[in-house]
């Protein structure tokens, strides 16, 4: 497969999460991911976009979502020009203790890491944030089958 690129620029409001999920899941299905992986990709993207909507902007702005496909992987880059944040603060939390304290929020970033094969956050506080997430078509050198997670 040659490298292909798809892009969605969409207003940052929760009404659009459904549309974002549909965009991502259709492309993931089209390139042959299992139902299970499609669900994971859809959820990871939902979490990243919901974070942009809830935390990045003070008012409705724009989310930029890019999907790149090559022969071995699907890469999704979600970017915003919002306030940015310190991702390490969230990732360094012990999620079990955090939940045990019955705290709300910050769960999405942990989910994204659990659902995707590679995740990278780049944030410049006050300027922009970019999250890049990757799901491979192959696992341990083999094409994934529907029975594998």
């Amino acid at each position: 497969m040659n490298k292909e690129k798809y892009q969605l620029k969409i207003p940052s409001k929760t009404d659009n999460l459904e549309l974002i999920r549909t965009f991502v899941s259709r492309i993931s299905e089209m390139v042959g991911f299992t139902d299970d992986d499609v669900y994971k990709i859809e959820l990871a993207v939902d979490e990243a976009c919901a974070n942009v909507i809830k935390h990045a902007y003070k008012k409705e702005e724009e989310i930029n979502l890019v999907i790149e496909l090559d022969y071995k992987k699907l890469t999704i880059i979600i970017s915003d020009q919002g306030i940015g944040f310190d991702v390490n603060k969230i990732l360094n939390r012990d999620i079990k203790n955090y939940l045990a304290q019955m705290k709300v929020g910050g769960l999405g970033i942990h989910l994204i890491h659990a659902l995707m094969d590679e995740v990278e956050f780049r944030s410049e506080p006050g300027r922009k944030t970019e999250v890049k997430m990757v799901k491979y078509f192959v696992k341990d050198g083999k094409i994934k089958k529907s029975s594998e997670s």
């Binding site: 999920r21 959820l43 919901a50 939940l99 019955m102 709300v104 999405g108 989910l111």
Partner: peptide, 16 residues
């Protein structure tokens, strides 16, 4: 059919 962490957060918000 579908849940994201926002849904889980609802339960967290009330449980205590």
């Amino acid at each position: 059919l579908y849940i994201s962490s926002a849904g889980l957060g609802v339960f967290m918000g009330f449980i205590e």
